[in-house]
Simulated assay, not measured.
Amino acid sequence: MEHSDFVRWGIRDAYWHHGVDSPSAFIAEVDRFRLGDSAADIRARTLVFDAEAEGRGQAAELYAALTCPKDYLRFTAEEAAQFHVQPGATAMLTHRLFDWLDDNL
């Protein structure tokens, strides 16, 4: 954290979101969030976003576990949208999201 403002911000932001103040507390808190067998309880049509460079994401696993009507959108480096929440391609993200909403609501 002392060598990178970006890493320091990311860690502090994650701590803030989870109400913790140490690495061990963060890991314990995040470990509580396991979908497990609950994915089968989701009944509404579900859109799952994924990103090519999402190293720690679980979108593909969530999509596979869903038994409800579902759609999977994966963003790629070719689209400049390979990172979490597609920061390089927000116009594409919102376009695809709103198209899905138009088609499914």
Rank of each mutant, 00 (worst) to 15 (best):
M1S: 13
E2S: 14
S4F: 02
D5R: 14
V7P: 06
R8N: 15
R8T: 09
G10D: 10
G10M: 14
I11D: 11
I11Y: 03
I11N: 13
R12I: 00
D13R: 12
D13M: 09
W16R: 15
H17I: 05
G19F: 11
V20P: 10
V20H: 04
D21Y: 03
D21E: 11
S22Y: 06
S22W: 04
P23E: 10
A25P: 04
A25Q: 15
A25D: 14
F26S: 10
I27K: 09
I27Y: 08
A28K: 12
A28W: 06
A28E: 15
A28V: 02
E29S: 15
E29A: 14
V30W: 08
D31N: 15
F33Y: 15
R34Q: 15
R34K: 08
R34L: 07
R34A: 08
L35N: 07
L35K: 01
L35S: 08
G36Y: 01
G36N: 07
S38P: 03
A39E: 06
A39I: 07
D41P: 07
D41A: 12
I42D: 05
I42Y: 08
I42H: 05
I42G: 01
R43E: 14
R45A: 00
R45Q: 11
T46P: 11
L47K: 07
V48D: 01
F49C: 13
F49G: 05
D50Q: 08
E52T: 12
E52N: 11
E52L: 10
E52W: 08
A53N: 14
A53Y: 12
R56L: 07
Q58H: 07
A59M: 03
A60T: 01
E61F: 00
L62P: 02
L62E: 01
Y63D: 00
A64V: 01
A64K: 00
A64D: 01
A64G: 01
A65C: 00
T67P: 01
C68L: 08
C68Q: 06
C68M: 02
C68G: 02
K70H: 02
K70Q: 02
D71P: 03
Y72E: 01
Y72C: 01
R74F: 09
R74K: 14
R74V: 11
F75M: 06
T76W: 01
F83A: 12
F83Y: 15
F83V: 04
F83Q: 12
H84E: 12
V85R: 12
V85F: 14
V85E: 13
G88I: 00
A89D: 08
A89G: 06
A89C: 04
T90A: 08
M92I: 14
M92C: 05
L93Y: 15
T94L: 15
R96T: 04
R96Q: 13
R96W: 02
R96H: 04
W100L: 10
L101D: 06
D102L: 07
D102P: 01
N104Y: 00
N104Q: 06
L105H: 05
